[in-house]
Simulated scan of single mutants.
Amino acid sequence: MSMRSEVSLDMSQNPCFFFAADQNYFPYACLAARRVLDVSGPIKGFLLQTGAGAKDLEVGERLLGSAVSILDVSKFMEATNFDPGHLTLATYIRLFADQLPEFEPYDRIVYADSDVLFNRSIADLTHTQLHAPLLAAHDEQSYFDAKYRKHLPMKPGAPKFNAGVLVFNMPLVRREGLLQRTRELSSQHTYGLDQGALNVAFEGRWQTMHPNWNVMTNFSSQISFGKSFARHFTRGKPWSQRSIGVEPEALAIYRQLAKDTPWAGHFARQPRFALKSFTRKLDAITGFLINDEKRKRRSRFDAEQVSRIFADHADRFMMAAQYPERVAGIAR
Rank of each mutant, 00 (worst) to 15 (best):
F273N: 07
L185Q: 05
P84G: 02
N24D: 14
L71S: 10
A123I: 14
S69H: 06
V73G: 13
D312S: 08
A201D: 12
E293F: 09
Q222F: 04
A112W: 06
K160C: 10
D56I: 03
A321L: 07
R149S: 15
R298Q: 05
P271A: 01
L179H: 02
A123L: 13
G287D: 05
G177E: 03
R174F: 10
Q49T: 08
Y106R: 05
S40R: 06
S187H: 12
E61A: 11
D22F: 03
R149V: 13
I285C: 06
I70P: 06
R272Y: 03
Y143S: 14
H266G: 02
C16P: 02
M209F: 04
Q188D: 05
K294C: 13
T190E: 13
S121P: 07
A331I: 07
L179K: 02
R4C: 08
D83L: 03
R308G: 12
K237H: 11
Q180F: 04
W206S: 05
M209Y: 07
L172C: 08
Y92E: 06
K259D: 10
H86C: 13
N162A: 13
R255S: 03
N199C: 07
P156G: 11
M11C: 09
H151A: 12
A132R: 13
G164F: 09
M170D: 03
T234E: 08
R308W: 07
F288H: 09
G85L: 00
P171L: 08
G226W: 09
V68H: 06
Q322H: 15
Y323P: 12
D283N: 12
F46Y: 15
Q222L: 08
P133C: 03
S74G: 05
P211M: 00
A303T: 13
F229M: 11
D139K: 10
L172N: 10
E6S: 10
